[in-house]
Amino acid sequence: MNPRNCRIDHLVTSGTFSLDGGTWDVDNNVWIVGDEREAIVIDAAHDAQAIEAALDGRTLRAIVCTHAHNDHIDAAPALAAATGAPILLHPDDLPLWKQTHPGRAPDGELADGQELEVAGTRLRVLHTPGHAPGAVCLHAPELSTVFTGDTLFQGGPGATGRSFSHFPTIIDSIRGRLLTLPPRTVVRTGHGDPTTIGDESDHLQEWIQRGH
């Protein structure tokens, strides 16, 4: 299938993020990658019905979790039940997953270097720990895009001040796995506006100094 038929749909859902005894209101980006027949969902956040409606009858091939903070996975089991799609998660994030869904395990594992395919388009899994141990990004070179979850945002790395996170590790992940991508690569994030690898690479030293 021609990858030019593949498109990226964007949905914003709202809910709460809870960790370490705190709860915050958040808006999450849900990314749907596919064509008119099939798709994958990246981060099933908050509202399974809204995500299913955005699929518009397409076959859902997988629900991919960039990490297992509750705001990125809370709607995943309901969406899986409605569509029959498997939930995929890096195994290093199972402790976080179990905090939200103790009675429901993911259906499959994500591994560094693994390739997913939808609508003739490849998405390569990049293990990028730091925000969470099992955090991953998905690089779609044919779409000049990387989906970064909460690893890289417009203006800097994801938060590392809570359990299971580590600032030097996220900097290593961003430097070694993301800033090596082509500068024009569009960064589609877990929250907020997109950016590009080129725009963010200029600020690496500022982030490092800010984090110490």
Rank of each mutant, 00 (worst) to 15 (best):
A62L: 04
L123S: 05
H166R: 05
Q114P: 11
G155L: 08
P129T: 06
E115R: 14
R175I: 00
P102M: 02
H67R: 00
C137N: 09
Q154V: 09
S144V: 10
C65E: 15
T145V: 05
T151G: 05
S163L: 07
L96N: 07
V125G: 05
T145W: 06
Q114Y: 12
G130H: 08
A53T: 15
L94M: 09
H131W: 08
T66K: 07
E115M: 12
C137Y: 12
A111H: 14
C65L: 10
I174L: 01
R184C: 02
L126P: 09
G108I: 07
D112N: 15
T185K: 07
H131P: 08
L89S: 04
A81R: 12
R177M: 12
L152W: 05
H67Q: 11
V136N: 12
I51S: 05
T169Y: 02
H131V: 07
I73D: 10
L55K: 04
T145H: 09
A105W: 10
H46P: 06
P91D: 02
A132N: 00
L116I: 13
P95R: 07
I170G: 02
P77M: 06
I170W: 03
S165D: 12
H131T: 13
Q154G: 08
R58M: 00
E142M: 13
I171Q: 08
H90Q: 13
T66A: 07
I73F: 15
G130N: 03
G161S: 10
L179N: 00
I170H: 02
F147S: 05
D74T: 14
L179Q: 01
I171E: 06
A140E: 08
G158N: 05
F153L: 10
D150M: 06
A45P: 08
R104C: 04
L126M: 14
R61T: 10
G84A: 09
R104E: 01
Q49D: 15
A53N: 13
P157I: 01
G158Y: 07
P106C: 08
Q49V: 13
A44Q: 11
F147E: 03
G130A: 02
A48Q: 09
I73T: 13
H46E: 04
I63M: 08
T148V: 10
A78P: 05
T100G: 07
G84Y: 11
P182Q: 00
D150E: 09
V146A: 11
V186K: 09
A76K: 06
D71I: 00
A45Q: 07
G149Q: 06
G149C: 05
H101M: 09
S163H: 07
L60P: 02
R122V: 06
L55P: 09
T83Q: 03
A132I: 02
T66Y: 11
D107K: 00
G155P: 08
A105Y: 07
R175P: 04
A135K: 01
H69I: 06
I73N: 07
T151E: 00
A75D: 08
A76L: 13
T151C: 13
A82S: 15
G57I: 01
L79E: 09
A82L: 14
A50G: 15
G176T: 09
G103S: 12
A50F: 04
T128P: 14
A105C: 03
L138C: 14
A81E: 15
G120A: 06
A159F: 07
L179V: 00
L179F: 14
A81L: 10
D107M: 04
G120D: 03
A78G: 06
L60K: 01
A119N: 04
K98Y: 10
V64L: 15
A82F: 14
A80P: 11
D47F: 09
G57S: 01
T100I: 06
